[in-house]
Design a protein around this nucleic acid. Structure first.
Lengths: 221, 221
DNA sequence: GCGACTTTGTTCCTGCGTTCACAAGCGGTT
DNA sequence: AACCGCTTGTGAACGCAGGAACAAAGTCGC
């Protein structure tokens, strides 16, 4: 059996597929049956040619002259992204941000299910958030083992993020999403993805100031 | 006067500069006086050559054979990123995520100051978060005008994000950070930067499943 | 039944970001 | 004073993502 299609999808494409999935779900809820690449690209904020190239990684899934069938394309992207399978996630650090994530309903519809919330502060333990009870950090390894959680989310202070990362990796978690403002080191075979909110703000602010005064990088008083 | 150095810094470099700044601040607090590109790159999780190229955008700032002077480099990056100047920010949508951002102490040290928190729900108005009082959405334009806020952060539900974006842009905000899971349209001259938490999780999960089974994209049952 | 129009899927190309490798420069040592 | 090791800064090559243009294909109208 030949393999005419390269078996790897670029990371940038995967991120956009998730956006297309959301737009398609909204269109389907609105009763739309077909959509063209141009319209879909406009709604997703990308170039139409790039969108078609992204979709081409899934094989032909449109009809020339007509466009894409909304429900079918949504299901197809959902299958590729693995939305239908439930993924067990654990969340460590139930501060403001952790609480926001645990309580965010948008994850459930994408196949993500929090099976454990952990915090070190005794005051937090026992609190109910999003249908889960906050547990002491000691139980982390037991819960990961019992639930086969494959994804860990770190929303702790920076000082303890590395130690939490180490424990998650040792317990068998293979994918980690880190919101703490530190760069984490993890063993091979463990993916760490970082979201740094203050870096996002900083980049945004810099682009704004650069637009106003595109000169004078090295010669400021 | 010649301009030997290109006056624009790539966006990817700006994001890394913010990371270097944080690492350098930690090193300075720890009493380190000099650091080599290799060590700094390791702490920031990047390639040493790339780090040196990033820093070369600021002009020569290291000493060959020795390394970089921690405090001087920190100050230099801080000046380029504009950390010393205070930037007024408004935040719309005081849910869990908005509260987390308003209460996050890490922004203040980077020059970001929230000058207005807004929500549409009467129950939220009057609440005190991070030293600010939550105001009704009606006051958005007045506060933006009075404080000359240049940055807006949107943490509202998706349904109202576009209308908030329109109002921010009309009020004079030039840079918008959007956490709502929709793609926003804004007029020319207004930068919109999007952070989509569920997309991050989705990409992470996909990379994990792709690592386990790198085949069969189009041929799943 | 046939032609024209619409839209997809693909190919080419341009530009950017990243990485490797080397020359230049500084401090310490003899 | 000269040499040696170490580190920076830069030039070149590689790979990748993004955008534009074109051919294939299907539908609608006549």
């Amino acid at each position: 059996m030949i393999q005419p299609r390269p078996r790897t999808i670029p990371e940038a494409t995967v991120a956009r597929l998730a956006v297309y999935l959301r737009v398609l779900s909204a269109l389907a809820d609105g009763g739309r049956s077909t959509v063209s690449s141009g319209e879909l690209a406009s709604a997703a904020g990308v170039n139409p040619a790039g969108l078609r190239k992204d979709l081409s990684h899934l094989g032909p899934c449109g009809v020339r002259g007509v466009g894409y069938e909304v429900g079918a394309l949504r299901d197809r992207i959902g299958r590729v992204l693995g939305v239908e399978r439930s993924r067990a996630c654990v969340l460590v650090g139930i501060g403001n941000l952790g609480s926001a994530l645990a309580d965010y309903a948008g994850f459930g519809s994408r196949g993500f299910e929090f099976v454990g919330l952990f915090d070190a502060a005794p005051a937090r333990i026992g609190q109910q958030i999003g249908g889960q009870t906050v547990r002491p950090l000691d139980e982390l390894e037991d819960v990961v083992a019992a639930t086969s959680a494959s994804i860990g989310v770190i929303t702790t202070p920076a000082a303890v993020a590395q130690s939490v990362c180490d424990r998650l990796a040792a317990a068998g978690v293979r994918s980690i999403l880190n919101f703490a403002p530190v760069t984490l080191a993890a063993p091979d075979g463990v993916d760490v993805r970082k979201v740094d909110l203050s870096v996002e703000l900083q980049v945004l602010a810099f682009l704004g100031q650069q637009r106003l005064a595109p000169a004078a990088v090295g010669e400021m008083a």
